[in-house]
Design a binder for these strands. Structure first.
Lengths: 153, 153
DNA sequence: CTAGGAGTTGAAGTTGACTTCAGGTCAAGG
DNA sequence: CCTTGACCTGAAGTCAACTTCAACTCCTAG
C-alpha cells in the first residue's frame, strides 16, 4: 500500500463518481483496491485514471462489459503509461464515426420522409433502417401494410 | 369496429413488432384497440402508422413517455393525415442535429486527447464534457488529481 | 478518549422497455 | 364438431448501471 492512498470518498470527490458507483466498479472488476487494517478501501492514485477512462468510454457508448475487456488489455505488471491509454482510446474513433454516420443517415431520411408523408410508404427508409441505402426498391416485407389508397394525394 | 380489423398477430407481422410489445404499448396508452366478442384485440389499420411512428421516434432517441406526449397532440376526432405526422416528426430534427454535434465534439476531443496523453490533464475536455469549450483554462475541480509529475515527459 | 462523519456489507430497489410464463379461452379450417 | 394455433391475463423476470437501505464498524479531530 503506497504512502499516499486515497479513500473511497477522496476518489469520489476527485472523479465526481459516487462512492456507490466506485464500489460497484470494484465488484465488477473495473478497478481494484487494497484494504486498510479495518477493512476500508484504499485506492492507488492510478485508479483516478482508470475511472476517468471508464466514464469517457461510457460517453463513447461502450458498455461496462466492453470497458472491462478494454481495461484487461492494459499491462498488469506496471502502471499504464500514456501510450497504453492512447492505444485503447484510439480504437473508439471508428465507433464514434459510425454512430455519427447512423444519426446523419437518420436525419437525412427524416427530411426526405417529411417530404414523402412520413411513415406512409411501404419502402420508407426510416422504418426500414437496416438496409436503408441498399434496399430502396422492394423490401422483403410490406412494412406498413399501406396501399396506394392510403397515400396522400 | 371497421370491417377490416387487424388481429394482434397481423399487426405484429406487418410492423415487425412483437405481440408482447404491442400489448405493452396498449397498456402504456401508445396505441389502442377495440375488442372482439371473445375479448381479443381488434386493431384499426391506423395503428400500423402509430406503431411505425413509435419505432422511428425511438430510433431518434425519444422515450416512450415523450412519444406518448407527442402522440397526444394528434387530433382525436379524425384519422391523422400526412401533415399531422409531418408536424410531429419535424420536431425531431433539432434533436438529431444536437446529438450529432455532441458526438462530433466527442470525436474531436478524443483526437486531441490522444495527442495530449488522454485522460492525464486536469483540464481534459473529454472528462469535463459540460463546459468543454468554455472552460479550457481552470475548471472548478481538479478532475483527475494529476500533478505535473504525473505527466509523461 | 470520544463524537460523529466516513466507511463497510449484502440485499433490495430503480428505470425503461420489454419478454416470459402459467394457466387458461377464442375462433377458424377441415 | 373438434382441433389447434392464436389470443387472453396478471405477475414475474430481464438487463444495465447503478442507488438505497439497514445495521453495523472505522478512524481522526478536538
Amino acid at each position: 500500500m503506497p504512502d499516499e492512498w486515497l479513500t473511497i470518498g477522496a476518489v469520489a470527490d476527485r472523479t465526481g463518481v459516487a462512492t456507490s458507483a466506485l464500489r460497484f466498479y470494484e465488484r465488477e472488476g473495473l478497478i481494484d483496491a487494497a484494504r486498510s487494517e479495518g477493512g476500508q478501501r484504499r485506492f492507488h492514485r492510478d485508479v483516478l485514471r482508470r475511472v476517468a477512462f471508464v466514464r469517457v468510454a461510457q460517453r463513447v457508448g461502450l458498455t461496462l462489459d466492453e470497458i472491462r475487456s478494454a481495461l484487461a488489455q492494459l499491462p498488469d505488471n506496471r502502471t499504464p503509461n500514456q501510450r497504453d491509454w492512447q492505444r485503447l482510446s484510439r480504437s473508439w474513433r471508428p465507433r464514434l464515426v459510425e454512430q455519427i454516420a447512423v444519426l446523419e443517415r437518420l436525419r437525412d431520411e427524416l427530411s426526405s420522409c417529411i417530404g414523402c408523408g412520413c411513415l406512409s410508404l411501404r419502402t420508407c427508409a426510416l422504418y426500414n433502417p437496416d438496409d436503408a441505402a441498399a434496399t430502396l426498391g422492394v423490401g422483403p416485407r410490406y412494412l406498413l401494410g399501406d396501399t396506394a389508397a392510403d397515400l396522400p394525394t
